[in-house]
C-alpha cells in the first residue's frame, strides 16, 4: 500500500507544479528514492514506477517517462524535477 500512497503523493505534487507552470503535458518526472521502510516493507523503484504510471492515466502525465534514481544512503523520497511543455 505504501508505494501506492507514495506514487499518489509524488504524482499529485508533480501535477500541481505542472499546473502552476501551465504545462499541457508532463514528459518526464525525476524522483530520488532513498531507503523507505514502512511496516517492514521497503518501497521498490519498480513498484513506484508502475503505480505512478497507473495513477497518471487520464492526467497530463499519462505518457510521462518516470526516472527513479536510487540513493541507498538517503532516507525518504524526493521529487527532483518535472519536464514538460
Amino acid at each position: 500500500m505504501h508505494d501506492f500512497h507514495a506514487a499518489d503523493n509524488l504524482l499529485k505534487i508533480s501535477l500541481s507544479y505542472a499546473q502552476k507552470n501551465k504545462f499541457k503535458k508532463i514528459d518526464k518526472i525525476k524522483i530520488e528514492l532513498g531507503k523507505f521502510i514502512e511496516h517492514g516493507q521497503e518501497i521498490l523503484a519498480d513498484n513506484l514506477k508502475f503505480n505512478i504510471k497507473m495513477l497518471a492515466k487520464g492526467t497530463i502525465a499519462k505518457n510521462s517517462e518516470i526516472v527513479i534514481i536510487e540513493k541507498r544512503g538517503e532516507n525518504g523520497y524526493k521529487l527532483i524535477e518535472i519536464e514538460g511543455e
Binding site: H5, Y17, K24, E38, E81, I82, E85
Partner: peptide, 17 residues
C-alpha cells in the same frame, strides 16, 4: 511551446502512524 524543466526538490516523507 518549448520543453521546460522545473526543479522541485520536494522531500516527501511519510511519518507513518
Amino acid at each position: 511551446m518549448p520543453k521546460k524543466i522545473i526543479k522541485i526538490n520536494h522531500l516527501a516523507k511519510m511519518e507513518g502512524h
